[in-house]
Design a binder for these strands. Structure first.
Lengths: 155, 155
DNA sequence: CTTGAAAGAGCCAGAGC
DNA sequence: GCTCTGGCTCTTTCAAG
């Protein structure tokens, strides 16, 4: 089932505000409730819509500080990665975790209340597995943050 | 109004699934619908819950590639940043954009369909403002990605 | 905080164009 | 694909304990 322009417009709306009613979305894309509802059901069934979540205010829940951690490792085997990935998955302060190309092997985005709290997470990280080199960069300002993917390429 | 443990549990649930009904959430935190609904209203009014969004599948909308772009600039004045920030805000492929401490001045997370598509975004970036140095790192694997903030520090 | 009730909105499935 | 129609669930507010 390919995606048409109406589907893309529905997705664009839901990416911005998942609390919109089916009727409201239908109205904006030129559909009545039922066909709009069926399209949304399909998008969910196909897994294109993964989930609906609430986004909280970082400052209100006391994690104003964003830190990027770059990691180099000397061990590049699957077993090492599995251990490390499992350990990192359990750290709630780590929001993003990528295996990279280039000189840096792994990149993590971490949110914490303070530099001291970051140090505790750092210690926990290096206790999981052997890391060759760890360097941290602190974000001074979050200029843009969105979860909305570009839909220009879809379909 | 300080946040208590029940509020934290409500937030934890909504961060994972914002489609849960008020009755369902109430049941899980040991509240009936009415007081649970009032708490959620308060959390929204206080801005602790910023918004509810749908998260889409990156591959389904054809942006499987994540690229981190590190930028150094020679110009560190407000005017330059304003120009650059405005330009970047209009690029839908840029999901995150931070001003950093350390040797790198800015860090961007970009999603695109392919390396060729990234090159187009890159050209657009360098056309916005004068950049001293731009380096790109490609993500080979997304090991963890969550929008759920840690609630251990809140309240 | 609770329960219970009640109005309204919204969801979801049917039949039919 | 679409609309229309109805029943049902959920949300949201109220009163009262």
């Amino acid at each position: 089932m390919p995606m048409d322009d109406v589907d893309r417009r529905i997705l664009a709306l839901l990416q911005e505000d998942a609390a919109l009613s089916v009727a409201e979305i239908g109205g904006r894309v030129g559909l009545s409730s039922t066909p709009c509802w069926r399209r949304i059901q399909n998008l969910e069934k196909q897994g294109i819509i993964r989930k609906r979540v609430a986004l909280l205010d970082r400052r209100a829940v006391e994690v104003p500080l964003t830190v990027f951690v770059m990691i180099r490792t000397s061990q590049h085997n699957d077993e090492w990665l599995e251990t490390f990935a499992k350990g990192v998955a359990d750290i709630p302060e780590v929001l993003e975790f990528y295996r990279m190309s280039g000189t840096v092997d792994y990149l993590l985005r971490i949110v914490v209340p303070s530099v001291e709290a970051y140090d505790a997470v750092y210690k926990r990280l290096i206790s999981i597995a052997d890391l060759a080199e760890v360097s941290s960069s602190f974000a001074m300002e979050e200029i843009k943050y969105t979860t909305a993917l570009p839909l220009t390429y879809a379909g």
